[in-house]
Amino acid sequence: MCYGPDKHTIPCIVDLRDTNSYKDVRVNLESLNKNQIELFLAIEQPEKQAREELRHNADKYFPDVPLADWNSDKGFADLPLFGTIGYMYECYARYISMEYTDGQTLWEKLFDNNAVQKDMFNVHSTPKQPNDCHPQKEYPQFDTLFGPEDLDGGMAGSQNKAIDMMCAITDQGEGNSAGIKHYRRTQLLRAVQPDYRESDEALKLDYPAYDGDGELAASRDAAARFHSAAFDHYEHFQEISKDILHPKVATSEQLLTWEQWHAVAGNQWTASMLINEEYDAASAPQDILTPDDVAGALNRLKSE
């Protein structure tokens, strides 16, 4: 609902028309172009840059916690504009850390250790399981689920884990989680801090090649994700913007977008792009589309 050629607001975060650098940016899903890169930069910008961008509208952004005049009749539409995603998470961290007169935090009053959880990154399947597609954890040094062990010594463990998860999100996005770390219940020094980067070995196993090049392709695809992990998203989009706004002289290293690839006569999707050497049509599931069907659909979408 927030995307469209006439949209300018990232819900609960910022109306880009209030900024200096992004006031003409559309909140729209487009090809990898100048507008899309600037939208990504606006979404992931760190708080320091955002406060500078919004200095003429400071009263409209970066609300204090608890939110002023908030009551049980208010809902999503009444939420303020937080300025950045990182500051929104910091407000979240401050809220769950607030103590009531009985000494309990909001987290302690609401947390349910038996709640259903979905792990998209550290799920670990074995060859004996039917969906053997994730042989290793992507973040082996970072726990992405709550468990009974978190409650040892009370609720502080689970609350700290929630804070660490928020730190991972903001550290990967805008590259700064210092403000959120402050809200851990215990600040003990740990020999190994959580590592928010993906594992190189796990990526190579979890994301095999789909272009017929076998191990070489698997290593190349995984390497692209692993070697960019040292950069937060904001830095990564800054780097890509150089190629979009100031393209290099044509070289093998030049960034090639799908739009540019499709513009070359004869380029279109083929079934071979969607499979690897392990694919066997005879044993493939019969209740899903074939690679030829998918390739055909992609080409029709592009042509129409």
Rank of each mutant, 00 (worst) to 15 (best):
D59M: 04
Q260I: 07
F121P: 01
V264H: 03
I180R: 08
R300K: 13
K74A: 05
E53F: 04
D287T: 11
D221A: 11
T9M: 11
Q193M: 07
R17L: 05
K302S: 14
T84L: 02
L289Q: 10
Q187V: 13
E201L: 13
D292P: 00
F237Q: 04
D24N: 15
A93P: 12
L289T: 01
D112W: 05
S303K: 10
D213H: 08
S177R: 13
L110D: 08
H134P: 00
G147H: 12
C133A: 12
L67D: 08
A229Y: 00
R94T: 03
V14S: 05
A297C: 13
T9H: 05
L188P: 00
Q141W: 05
D143C: 09
M1Y: 06
A217K: 04
K118S: 10
C12D: 06
S177T: 12
I96P: 04
Q45V: 15
A265I: 01
N33C: 13
A271C: 14
K48Q: 11
M165K: 09
V27W: 02
V14E: 05
S21F: 06
G75A: 08
L81A: 15
L189W: 06
E30G: 07
N28I: 02
H8K: 10
Q136L: 15
C2S: 12
E235F: 07
I43M: 12
D280G: 04
A162T: 11
A156P: 00
M166K: 11
D64P: 02
Q238C: 14
L81W: 14
L255G: 01
K48I: 10
D171I: 15
D293H: 11
E198N: 04
I85W: 13
I85Q: 10
D221Y: 09
I13G: 04
E215C: 01
F231R: 14
Q141N: 13
L216F: 07
M1E: 09
S72W: 01
W107Q: 09
T126V: 12
D292T: 09
A250H: 03
D171R: 14
T290R: 11
L216A: 12
Y196K: 07
H134I: 03
E30N: 02
C2T: 07
D293K: 06
I180Y: 09
R51E: 08
N28S: 08
P66H: 09
N71A: 05
W107C: 13
G75T: 05
A178W: 02
D211M: 14
S199F: 04
K74M: 14
I288R: 09
A217W: 08
N160R: 08
A284K: 01
A209T: 08
R300F: 12
E38G: 00
G157N: 00
P130I: 11
G179K: 10
C91R: 06
E52M: 05
N176H: 11
T9D: 03
N20F: 03
I37R: 02
S177C: 15
M273L: 14
H134K: 03
Q36M: 15
V249T: 07
Q193G: 00
Y61I: 14
R94A: 12
Q193S: 05
L81I: 09
A229C: 05
H124M: 04
L289I: 00
I288F: 10
K181A: 07
V65D: 03
K23V: 02
A263R: 07
V116S: 07
E278L: 15
G103K: 02
N122T: 15
N267F: 09
P148S: 14
N71G: 14
